[in-house]
Amino acid sequence: MSTSSYYVPATSKWPIISVIFLGFLAVGAGMLMTSGSGLIPFLIGFVGTLWVMYGWFMDVFKESQAGLYDAQMDRSFRQGMAWFIFSEVMFFAAFFGTLFYIRVFALPWLDGEGAKGVTALLWPDFVATWPLMTTPDPSIGGPDAIVNPWTLPLINTLLLVASSITLTFAHHALKHQDRKKLINWLVATLVLGGVFLVIQGIEYVHAWTELGLTLQAGIYGATFFLLTGFHGVHVTIGLIILAVMLVRVLKGHFTPDQHFAFEASAWYWHFVDVVWIGLFLFVYVF
């Protein structure tokens, strides 16, 4: 146990400022969805939140650089991050649970199989398939076609796996004080992640405009975009974090044994990667 005292920041304006902006963000988003107005509060909230994150993290960097954090503090950050990722795992678990429930229970029931098969009386023409191309009520309409997993999604899988590997190389380089390699591998990771997002964007446009695969395309479209969409959001966040790490590396931050921020971003990135593997298997392939 360390003998130095645990660092407790005196006061901080960031929490209160950030909740105000989050309030704007929420109210703005609510207004946008219900009445169409609300762009201004939404933007205030959005930009403000970004600014707060910058400022808040800057404080933390400075404190860290100033050597205020001891090993115990480091453990607090580690545990905080680890449990945060666990909460993200549960968030995605809800979505995967949805996918499995729909495929294993709901659709067969609607088609007349299993414990609630009488339901088929209501949907005499419905046939359960996955991907679900024709919905129980055909007026909702399923997609016309689905994304072939062995094209762009496969490339994306390779990209993300590769990016996890390059990030690990970067981490090794950091541990061995090889800054040049560190920068190169980190940049490579960012590029791979960026290309992933671009491809994902292309795929979305293709799906939406050419395949009729939209959010409204029945439960297939809904689960498809729910899972890939939230994954995409997480890739974006991961990329922003990694970009910040790159900036810090360029500024000369981090030492071989003091670089938790870097590690945390790596954990996050690997987590996002693992989620993708699950997606690739259960959303695209099977």
Binding site: V89, M90, F92, A93, T98, S139, I219, G221
Partner: peptide, 28 residues
């Protein structure tokens, strides 16, 4: 987070036309 997930799905059903909780589109 599971609560967050389910209310997010509600939000999508309400505002973006998904059918998670609507049998007509294959939901439940």
């Amino acid at each position: 987070p599971v609560l967050a997930g389910v209310i997010t799905m509600m939000l999508l059903d309400i505002n973006f036309g998904t059918s998670f909780f609507d049998a007509a589109g294959g939901g439940d």
